[in-house]
Computed example of a mutant assay.
Amino acid sequence: MRLWLRGLACQALRSSWGVCRIHTQPPPPPIPEVVATWEAISLGRQPVPEYFNFAHDVLDVWSQLEKTGHRPPNPAFWWVNGSGTEVKWTFEELGKQSRKAANVLEGVCGLQPGDRMMLVLPRLPDWWLISVACMRTGVVMIPGVSQLTAKDLKYRLQAARAKSIVTSDALAPQVDAISADCPSLQTKLLVSDTSRPGWINFRELLRAASPEHNCVRTRSGDSVAIYFTSGTTGAPKMVEHSQSSYGLGFVASGRYWKSMSRRSENKEVDGLD
Rank of each mutant, 00 (worst) to 15 (best):
Met1Gln: 04
Arg2Val: 13
Arg2Met: 14
Leu3His: 03
Arg14Asn: 02
Ser15Ile: 05
Ser16Met: 05
Ile22Gly: 15
Pro28Phe: 05
Pro30Lys: 03
Pro30Val: 01
Glu33Phe: 05
Trp38Arg: 07
Ala40Phe: 03
Pro49Ala: 00
Phe52Asn: 00
Asn53Gln: 03
Phe54Lys: 01
Asp57Arg: 06
Leu59Val: 06
Gln64Lys: 09
Gln64Tyr: 12
Leu65Tyr: 09
His70Glu: 13
Pro73Val: 00
Pro75His: 08
Pro75Phe: 04
Asn81Leu: 05
Gly82Pro: 14
Gly84Val: 08
Thr85Met: 09
Phe91Ile: 08
Glu92Asn: 15
Leu94Cys: 11
Gly95Arg: 15
Lys100Met: 09
Asn103Gln: 15
Asn103Asp: 15
Gly107Trp: 07
Gly107Ile: 03
Leu111Tyr: 04
Gln112Asp: 12
Gln112Val: 06
Gln112Arg: 08
Pro113Met: 13
Arg116Leu: 00
Met117Lys: 08
Met117Pro: 08
Pro122His: 11
Pro125Glu: 08
Leu129Ala: 00
Val132Glu: 06
Ala133Gly: 06
Arg136Thr: 12
Val140Ile: 10
Val145Phe: 11
Thr149Cys: 07
Lys151Gln: 09
Lys151Tyr: 04
Asp152Cys: 06
Leu153Ser: 02
Leu153Ala: 13
Leu157Gly: 15
Ala160Trp: 06
Ala162Ile: 07
Val166Lys: 03
Val166Tyr: 01
Val166Ile: 01
Asp169Phe: 04
Leu171Asp: 05
Pro173Met: 01
Pro173Lys: 07
Gln174Ser: 10
Ser179Leu: 12
Thr187Asp: 12
Lys188Asp: 01
Lys188Arg: 12
Leu189Asn: 04
Leu190Cys: 03
Leu190Val: 05
Val191Arg: 03
Ser195Ala: 02
Glu204Thr: 15
Ser210Tyr: 12
Glu212Cys: 07
Arg217Leu: 07
Gly221Pro: 14
Ser223Phe: 07
Phe228Met: 05
Thr229Ser: 13
Gly231Ile: 13
Lys237Gly: 11
Lys237Asp: 15
Val239Leu: 07
Glu240Phe: 10
Gln243Tyr: 01
Leu248Trp: 04
Gly254Trp: 05
Arg255Ser: 02
Tyr256Ser: 10
Ser264Thr: 08
Glu268Phe: 13
Val269Asp: 11
